[in-house]
Amino acid sequence: MKPDDMQLQLIDDVDRRLIQATQGGLPLVPRPYHRLAEQMDLSAVEVMTRLQRMLTSGIIRRIGVVPNHYALGYRVNGMTVWDVPDAQIDELGQQVGALEFVSHCYRRRRYPPKWPYNLFAMVHGQTTAQVEAQIQIIAQVLGHYNCGHQVLYSTRILKKTGLRI
């Protein structure tokens, strides 16, 4: 779905407050939705119903444990960027996005002439060698449609939080 279509998904002020109240995580107490409901002056049923509705409509993509991959040993984070023909990008993007080691895969706007890359895939590994092996696999998937690529390794995480609105 294109971002323009997504803008049609409407949320109201209560949803917005609920997003703000939950984006840092749910309380780790036996009845977390009741706790939220008390804080927001809503009923627990309304909190659960609204979360379910946002999950169904795709505003929330999942609710669960969010592991810290860096702490779990995935220290090397490579942003791989590829220049592929616009005519093939949807098909190729879906193939790359389906690879198990790819955590995010997007088509992004090109920024010519200096930045011709339109396909972005984030890969993670314990060592640079592991990540390089993953990049070889992506290169094989793209084959001769790969008109150029780069890998940008992160040297420092300067800030990382959940979505803020």
Binding site: M6, I19, G24, G25, L26, I59, I60, R62, V66, N68
Partner: peptide, 9 residues
């Protein structure tokens, strides 16, 4: 873990 909760699209 960073948190337990919703991940927004």
């Amino acid at each position: 873990i960073g948190r337990v909760g919703p991940v927004f699209q």
